Computed example of a mutant assay.
Amino acid sequence: MAVKKVALACSVCGSRNYMVTKKPTRTDRLQVKKYCKYCDSHTLHRETM
């Protein structure tokens, strides 16, 4: 069985920089402050489908 992954997209520029595993227990979308190499700063990244 393959592991399902979702992307984390930058809320400023929209680039999808990170991939995380999808957990069935998580009901809300994941939001994490991560470094975006395109914005050159730490921004909020949200889980995309």
Rank of each mutant, 00 (worst) to 15 (best):
K34S: 07
T43E: 00
V12I: 11
K37I: 08
L8R: 10
C39T: 07
A7E: 13
H45R: 04
M49H: 13
M19I: 04
Y35K: 01
R29Y: 03
R16I: 00
V20I: 15
V3G: 00
A9I: 02
D40Q: 11
T43H: 02
L8S: 12
Y18D: 03
A2R: 11
E47V: 07
V32T: 11
M49L: 13
V6A: 15
A2F: 09
G14Y: 02
V20R: 13
Y38F: 14
M1A: 15
K23L: 03
V32L: 13
N17P: 02
A7N: 11
A2E: 13
L8E: 08
S11F: 02
K5L: 04
C39K: 07
A9G: 05
N17G: 14
C10E: 06
V32F: 05
C13E: 07
K4A: 06
Y18I: 04
S11M: 12
K23E: 10
H45K: 05
L8G: 11
N17D: 11
R16F: 00
T48K: 12
K37H: 12
K5Y: 09
R16G: 01
D28K: 13
S11V: 07
V6D: 12
S15E: 13
K5I: 05
V12H: 09
M19F: 01
T48Y: 06
T21E: 15
T25L: 00
A2G: 15
T27H: 13
Y35C: 01
C39H: 06
M19K: 06
T43G: 01
S11N: 13
K34D: 06
K4L: 07
V6L: 14
Y18N: 04
K4C: 04
V6S: 15
M49C: 12
C10F: 03
H42L: 15
N17S: 10
R26Q: 03
K22D: 04
G14E: 05
R16H: 01
S15V: 11
R16Y: 01
C10R: 07
T21V: 10
C13W: 03
V32D: 10
L8W: 06
A2K: 13
T21F: 04
D40E: 10
T27R: 15
V20H: 07
S41C: 14
K4S: 10
V20G: 01
Y35N: 04
G14A: 05
Q31N: 02
V20D: 04
R46T: 13
L44Q: 10
M49V: 12
K37D: 08
C36F: 02
N17Q: 08
Y35V: 01
T48V: 15
V32N: 11
C10H: 05
C36L: 00
N17F: 03
P24E: 15
D40P: 02
K4N: 10
V32R: 14
C36M: 01
L44R: 09
